[in-house]
Design a protein around this nucleic acid. Structure first.
Length: 277
DNA sequence: AGCAACGCCTGATAGC
DNA sequence: TGCTATCAGGCGTTGC
């Protein structure tokens, strides 16, 4: 599933090809992907516009367009954005195709149809895409003391807090589990039971695993590929995610998987012990 | 306000 | 073999 490192890798890939290109036509084959405005207006307002650059905020891609508009795309679980030649075979579940003035295409493919697109003037796009709620950008703006203070006033399980996009933007299930293992913290620990030292270790661990994920061009665990359809390689570095029953890379104990708030959490029971009452 | 459960989706897999 | 049930989970919504 695309999290911060995967979305960042897609951004970097597409940045090599999209700036300067003009949208000549847009085919919307599944209208529910277009959240705002209605699909016909979405198409009408995109055609003729030129891509300027691409930004990322959390797991959201922001395509800056000529004329003061921004196109926001969220890949959710299985979304893929690929730059391809018009003659390349069209993958199944391709729901939106942006035709470009050089004959190439930007294609959005999404097996589970959870992905989302928004188009609005620059000064309205954050509200339209509900991005104003997003919290710290962990690789750019992640103040340690404020993170420690947030943990101290929240009682929810730390795994839930890491997945809360209004706290930290861009962490999903894979990097949450990997960060907690790297910091030796049990995923069900109440946030306000962590010491300042543990919070600092978690802060450092999150930055470390996210940066490693970017350096390895993402985790291709199931569906993820970059803007040219290429796999990442962080899946080979995973310590706990998807490794239920396999030995912990640190101590050899079998990795456990439990459910926390409906999501799976993977951890080592020896290296990530529960706090004593 | 904080927190948790549910719905949206399809393909892979488990179980009968 | 072929069917059905379950699971995967990001985020918006709903409700406690």
């Amino acid at each position: 599933m695309p999290e911060l490192p995967e979305v960042e890798t897609v951004r970097q890939t597409l940045l090599e090809f999209l700036p300067g290109r003009v949208v000549t036509a847009v085919a919307v084959n599944l209208a529910r992907i277009i959240k705002y405005p209605a699909a016909d207006r979405f198409v009408a307002e995109l055609v003729g516009r030129r891509f300027l650059t691409i930004d990322r905020r959390g797991k959201y891609l922001q395509f800056r367009l000529e004329g003061g508009y921004t196109l926001v795309i969220h890949l959710r679980m299985t979304g893929q954005l690929r730059y391809a030649a018009a003659a390349d075979p069209l993958p199944k579940h391709t729901h939106v195709i942006f035709h470009l003035d050089n004959g190439q295409q930007l294609r959005f493919t999404d097996l589970r149809q959870f992905g989302a697109m928004y188009l609005a003037p620059d000064d309205q796009i954050l509200q339209v895409a509900n991005m104003q709620r997003l919290g710290w950008e962990p690789l750019a703006d992640f103040p340690l003391e404020q993170f420690q203070a947030l943990l101290a006033r929240r009682s929810t399980k730390i795994k839930n807090l890491l997945l809360d996009q209004s706290a930290i933007a861009g962490i999903g299930n894979i990097y949450a589990d990997e960060g907690l293992f790297a910091a030796s913290i049990h995923p069900e620990t109440p946030a306000n039971r962590l010491s300042a030292t543990q919070a600092a270790a978690l802060h450092a661990a999150l930055i470390q695993v996210l940066a490693a994920g970017v350096a390895m061009r993402g985790t291709s665990f199931s569906d993820y590929v970059d803007g040219l359809g290429r796999s990442g390689s962080f899946q080979h570095q995973l310590t706990v995610y998807g490794r239920e029953g396999e030995p912990c890379p640190r101590c050899g104990q079998p990795i456990l998987r439990i459910k926390i708030a409906g999501r799976s959490a993977h951890f080592c029971p020896d290296c990530q012990p529960r706090l004593n009452s």
